[in-house]
Amino acid sequence: MKDFSKELNFKTSRSSGAGGQNVNKVETAVTVLWNVGASEFFNEDEKALIESKLKNRINSEGLLFLTVSESRTQLMNKNKAIEKIIEIVNKALIIPKKRLATKPSKGQKQKRLDTKKKISDKKESRRFKF
């Protein structure tokens, strides 16, 4: 897990929604911006992986951005934004294992067929016969 928080830039704004006077006068919402292409913490392959997996969060200038306005204080929102962006990027760096196709064994096939036959016989015995 890489901590690239030194490369992050922050912008503050007023939070939206209800909240009374605090919302109207205090800039508590925090937007964190990170330039993926200019990062020194990641190599070119990792940058390409991040850009491909997070392309819907990266704008045309190559900035990954995230806005947090969960808390009433700017400092808590800033800390949450750092945690979230690090978590998002680290998840993007995980390469899933390729699935190996497998087949059921002969024993499993036979067990399935035997179970089907038992159920079929049970239902057949319930039928009314003339």
Rank of each mutant, 00 (worst) to 15 (best):
I88H: 05
E87D: 13
K55S: 12
K53V: 03
G20I: 11
V68T: 06
R126P: 01
K118C: 01
S71C: 10
K116H: 07
S5V: 05
L100V: 12
R99Y: 05
G17N: 07
E51Q: 08
N90V: 02
N22L: 11
E61F: 11
K84I: 02
A81P: 05
Q21M: 13
R72G: 11
S52A: 10
I50Y: 04
A29T: 10
L8I: 15
R99A: 09
T73R: 15
R112D: 03
Q108W: 00
S69P: 05
D3W: 07
K98Y: 09
T31I: 06
I82D: 04
E70R: 13
F10L: 10
T73S: 15
A29E: 08
K122M: 13
A38V: 02
I88P: 00
N9P: 00
V26M: 06
S5T: 06
W34K: 02
K117Y: 11
I94D: 01
V30L: 12
G62H: 07
K6Y: 10
K117E: 11
K123I: 09
K2M: 10
K11S: 11
N35I: 00
V26E: 04
K116L: 13
F4N: 07
S120A: 14
R72P: 10
K53W: 00
V23S: 06
R57L: 14
I86S: 10
L33P: 00
L66T: 06
L66R: 10
K103A: 00
S60H: 09
V23G: 03
L113D: 05
K109I: 08
Q108Y: 03
K98V: 12
N59W: 10
N56L: 11
I95E: 07
K11Y: 08
S105K: 07
F42T: 05
F42S: 06
S125G: 06
L64N: 02
K111Q: 15
K11M: 13
L66K: 09
E46S: 06
